[in-house]
Design a protein around this nucleic acid. Sequence first.
DNA 1: GTCTATAGCCCGATAGAC
DNA 2: GTCTATCGGGCTATAGAC
Lengths: 197, 197
Amino acid sequence: MSTTGAAVSRREELLGIAARLFATQGYTNTTVRHIADAAGILSGSLYHHFDSKESMVDEILREFQNELFGQYEAILASTDDARAKLEAAVRVSFEAIDQHPFEVAIFQNDADYLGGVERFGYLAERNQQSREVWVTLLREGIASGALRPDLDVDLTYRFIRDTVWVAVKWYRPGGKLTHTAVADQYLTILLDGIAHA
Amino acid sequence: MSTTGAAVSRREELLGIAARLFATQGYTNTTVRHIADAAGILSGSLYHHFDSKESMVDEILREFQNELFGQYEAILASTDDARAKLEAAVRVSFEAIDQHPFEVAIFQNDADYLGGVERFGYLAERNQQSREVWVTLLREGIASGALRPDLDVDLTYRFIRDTVWVAVKWYRPGGKLTHTAVADQYLTILLDGIAHA
DNA sequence: GTCTATAGCCCGATAGAC
DNA sequence: GTCTATCGGGCTATAGAC
């Protein structure tokens, strides 16, 4: 099986193993020996594929964030009405939890720690970008009359952000509850609260 | 100044320093040397006051949880109507974030890890107890007609739990926003969503 | 691409002096 | 109650054989 075959490359396979361990045990709690053990090799052999443990989590987070923010930008640029855009952003987020649960969990649990390391400065930028996406959607919603005019935009932004992403702690891909069903239920609670009466 | 004087005991002082570091840097990322440095002593000296690092976090979490669940039980036992009880539980939770932000943060960030250690088995019990508190309040609310009858109780429980506790990530005691103001705003969003129309 | 072997450092915890 | 000194071990990362 060549490296360009149907199977993912060894590099990606190792990144997948690392992502699972980082997500379930935390970045600092996961040692390179844990990763190597799970891959069936010795820890030193990992350094044939990656510079460092930091490089591994860097690659994992960067790819995921690029994909996610591409989706947010597409929603912002669409011609849907304000409420549809807000709903779409919520649905895209739950979809991300479904399809990339490890990456979301790592970001939720370890972004604070990693943000203190220089090479991960982009995490703070992404955080700010995320705030702009949601605040823009909320302001559009208020301006269009779809959302209550007395909303505290900043508090509501944090409410939505936290509510959506924290679901990664209990949502299990492939379980009885689909990510679209979760999004439906969350939107019902959320919008009957913030939608104009 | 004796150990029974107005000032807190050295033991409590050290626990406070440890709680702050555990909360802001994570339990495993915080070393006994960090704690000792912050206290102005050497790491070995900590073991005059505590058996181990585990004992420190154990004492921190146990005290806090005993206090918090005492408050929940009082609310459950009260004669207020269902909606008032639900509101009271939310307010008590935000008050806990205000008055014990480190303890809440440690529980939120490190309970999963600590739960795997035998002596912290009570954390899982508290988790189950918390679920029972909220589910009871939600069922009472539905039965009394205060809440929408079509609510998914389990999903709504997770929604409330996550929404309330995750605020510890951004709420700052002593800041412009008081914990009662945050509770007001959260209850407005939450109840206009789940209260019967 | 993996293994053998190890460097250099930090970890939690201990024993005994003061 | 704190310090001095240290043990045994786990950590990330490296060098070179195969």
